[in-house]
């Protein structure tokens, strides 16, 4: 009786194992598409960093970036910063889509998007601006 009981528990545990294995598994983020997006964003970051610091560009609550206060950028560079913001957003959206796709779950895109939205803000440097849940700009 005891041994049967035990065996039952083992069976149950085994059945649960996939859950554990699944929860512990990493997401696939090493596809060529993700790598190339990551590299593009990394090299763009060197241009964007000073604008995050000045507050000209802020992190939006939906995981993108936005031109928060164009007046902080010299006139001649405003168009270029606008382009940087647009390109960054294009890459970020593609990144979220690619991660979902690389893991065989295109439907995860939205959740990955919102996961990133929180993590970008969490990891932002002090002094950078981000949008809170209400959409208002807050300085970190």
């Amino acid at each position: 009786m005891h041994s049967q009981n035990l065996r039952l528990w083992v069976v149950a545990m085994l059945l649960w194992l996939p859950v554990l294995a699944f929860a512990a598994a990493d997401l696939e983020i090493n596809t060529p598409a993700i790598s190339s997006l990551k590299m593009a964003m990394q090299s763009r970051h060197s241009q964007l960093a000073s604008h995050y610091a000045s507050g000209a560009v802020g992190l939006t609550r939906d995981g993108l970036v936005a031109l928060r206060d164009a007046a902080l950028v010299p006139l001649a560079q405003r168009q270029a910063v606008g382009s940087l913001v647009a390109a960054e957003n294009q890459d970020r959206k593609a990144l979220y889509r690619e991660i979902a796709r690389a893991n065989g779950h295109p439907e995860w895109e939205e959740e990955i998007h919102s996961t990133f939205a929180q993590r970008w803000v969490q990891k932002a440097a002090p002094g950078w601006w981000y949008q809170n849940h209400g959409g208002a700009w807050v300085k970190k």
């Binding site: 059945l15 859950v19 699944f22 983020i29 995860w108 959740e111």
Partner: peptide
């Protein structure tokens, strides 16, 4: 456990996603 298995398929791995996001953000920034 079977039903748990079924939910796995639609369950979003939040912890893994967070970890992946952190890794990418660390690299990008």
């Amino acid at each position: 456990s079977v039903s748990a298995c079924v939910t796995i398929n639609i369950y979003f791995p939040a912890a893994a996603a967070e970890k992946a996001a952190d890794k990418i953000i660390d690299e990008v920034w």
